[in-house]
């Protein structure tokens, strides 16, 4: 869903509402339409053979989903014991639900997609960078993250 929105709106300059959160000192955002809810970080169940960025599984009202520690995923030094750590529960366009563990949610921002400066790599998890009030914000490509979560071969 997000991808489509991004692509569609990229050609047709429009404002997209994004939710902005911080991981370490860096800020990132994702389209607010892909967010299901934000909940406090709770204890997860460790999963065997999981990549290091997967914290584990949680129970969201009967659905079992995995939580990704974005700090590890994005190679940012994490801030342990941060009381504002929350899990942003997102749904990808394939219907895969997962949680993104972020250090804190900052606010929402209207981002004009024509201001987005694309980053080089095609398969990268960053769709681009945008300047909001002199802050550099990375736009996270959710589907890449989820595809990695679901499709990664088990590393033994």
């Amino acid at each position: 869903m997000t991808e489509q929105i991004e692509l569609k709106r990229a050609t047709d300059p429009k404002i997209v509402k994004m939710i902005v959160f911080a991981i370490g000192v860096q800020e990132y955002c994702i389209p607010i339409l892909s967010v299901r809810e934000i909940r406090g970080f709770e204890k997860t169940t460790t999963l065997p053979f999981a990549p290091p960025y997967v914290c584990g599984a949680i129970n969201l009202r009967g659905i079992i989903l995995t939580v990704i520690d974005l700090a590890i995923y994005l190679n940012v030094p994490p801030q342990p014991d941060n009381p504002r750590r929350v899990a942003v529960i997102v749904e990808s366009k394939d219907g895969v639900v997962c949680g993104l563990l972020v250090d804190r949610v900052i606010d929402m921002a209207d981002i004009d997609l024509k201001d987005v400066q694309a980053v080089s790599e095609e398969g990268s998890c960053l769709a681009g960078l945008v300047l909001v009030d002199d802050r550099m914000i990375g736009i996270l490509r959710l589907d890449t993250v989820v595809a990695q979560l679901v499709g990664d071969t088990v590393s033994e």
Binding site: K43, T44, T45, L47, P48, F49, A50, G56, A57, I58, N59, G62, I63, I64, L65, T66, V96, V97, C98, L149, V150, G151, D152, V154, E156
Partner: peptide, 27 residues
């Protein structure tokens, strides 16, 4: 029995997951 693969991948040695009385996930 709850599927774990619907939101994640298949894990070796784990067939599914369940939710215990305290709400936590168990494999």
């Amino acid at each position: 029995i709850k599927s774990i693969e619907s939101n994640y991948r298949q894990i070796f040695g784990v067939s599914a997951a369940t939710i215990l009385g305290d709400g936590s996930v168990s494999l």
